[in-house]
Computed example of a mutant assay.
Amino acid sequence: MPATLSYPKTTTIFPQGSLNAANAAEFQQDLTTALQDSHTQALIVNLGQIESLDSAGLMALVSSLKLAHKLGCVMSLCSVPPAIKIIFELTQLDQVFEILDSHVVKF
């Protein structure tokens, strides 16, 4: 019997610039759309190009993580810049999100 490897469909989102009150609703909609795609089993949010993050941006990520759990999807963050990672640590959201060093998904 041959071995079979099954890889889930992974969707990656690459936001840029600032995630703040001005664009958090649009960002959250992008995440929701990606998660609701019937083929998406894992969502990676690559924060490598994010310069700033405020509470509205954090809430968009948290709401999307809740939706991912509800839909049975994996949601991870990767390439988080040090200045942004501090925000996750101060809010203790680094204990909630899976934060990867690079664009690799763990299952």
Score class of each variant (00 low, 15 high):
Leu77Ala: 10
Lys70Ala: 11
Asn46Leu: 02
Ser64Thr: 06
Gln41Ala: 02
Lys85Asn: 15
Asn23Tyr: 10
Pro8Glu: 06
Ala68Ser: 09
Pro15Ser: 05
Asn20Cys: 12
Ser55Gln: 10
Gln49Ala: 10
Thr40Val: 08
Cys78Glu: 02
Gly48Pro: 04
Asn46Ser: 08
Gln41Asp: 03
Asp37Ser: 13
Ile13Arg: 00
Val96Ser: 10
Asn20Gln: 12
Pro8Ile: 08
Val80Gln: 00
Lys106Thr: 15
Val62Ala: 06
Val45Ile: 15
Gln29Ile: 15
Gln29Phe: 14
Leu61Glu: 05
Pro15Leu: 03
Leu53His: 10
Ser52Arg: 12
His69Gln: 14
Lys66Asn: 11
Thr32Lys: 04
Gln95Val: 13
Ala56Gln: 09
Leu90Ile: 15
Val45Tyr: 02
Cys73Phe: 00
Asn23Ser: 12
Thr32Glu: 07
Gln29Gly: 14
Phe14Trp: 12
Val105Thr: 14
Ser63Cys: 11
Val74Ser: 10
Gly72Cys: 05
Leu19Asp: 04
Phe97Asp: 11
Gln95Leu: 15
Val80Ser: 00
Ser55Phe: 09
Pro15Val: 03
Val74Asn: 10
Ser6Gly: 10
Leu65Phe: 10
Ala60Phe: 08
Lys66Glu: 09
Ile86Arg: 14
Pro82His: 11
Gln28Arg: 13
Gly48His: 01
Thr32Ala: 04
Tyr7Asn: 05
His103Cys: 13
Phe97Thr: 13
Ser76Val: 14
Phe27Val: 11
Met59Glu: 13
Thr33Ala: 15
Ser38Met: 04
Ile50Gly: 00
Pro15Trp: 01
Ala60Gly: 12
Ile13Asp: 00
Cys78Pro: 06
His39Pro: 02
Asp37Met: 08
Thr32Phe: 01
Leu58His: 03
Pro81His: 03
Leu31Cys: 12
Cys73Gln: 00
Ala21Asp: 07
Ala24Glu: 07
Ala56Tyr: 07
Ile13Pro: 00
Val74Arg: 09
Leu93Arg: 09
Ala42Glu: 09
Glu51Ala: 13
Ser38Asn: 05
Ala60Leu: 11
His39Thr: 14
Thr91Tyr: 02
Ala3Thr: 15
Ala68Arg: 01
Ile84Asp: 03
Gln92Gly: 04
Leu47Tyr: 06
Lys85Met: 13
Leu58Val: 12
Ser55His: 08
Leu35Gln: 02
Asp30Tyr: 07
Leu65Lys: 12
Val80Cys: 03
Ala42Cys: 13
Ala21Trp: 01
Asp54Thr: 11
Leu43Asn: 00
Ala25Asn: 12
Gln92Tyr: 06
Gln36Trp: 03
Asp94Arg: 04
Val105Pro: 04
Lys106Met: 05
Leu53Pro: 08
Gln49Asn: 09
Ser76His: 05
Ile50Cys: 01
Ile84Arg: 03
Asn23Thr: 14
Pro82Val: 14
Asn46Gly: 06
Thr32Val: 12
Asp30Val: 12
Gly72Asn: 07
Met1Leu: 09
Lys70Phe: 05
Lys106Asn: 08
Thr10Ile: 15
Lys66Val: 09
Asp54Ile: 08
Leu53Met: 13
Thr12Trp: 00
Leu19Asn: 06
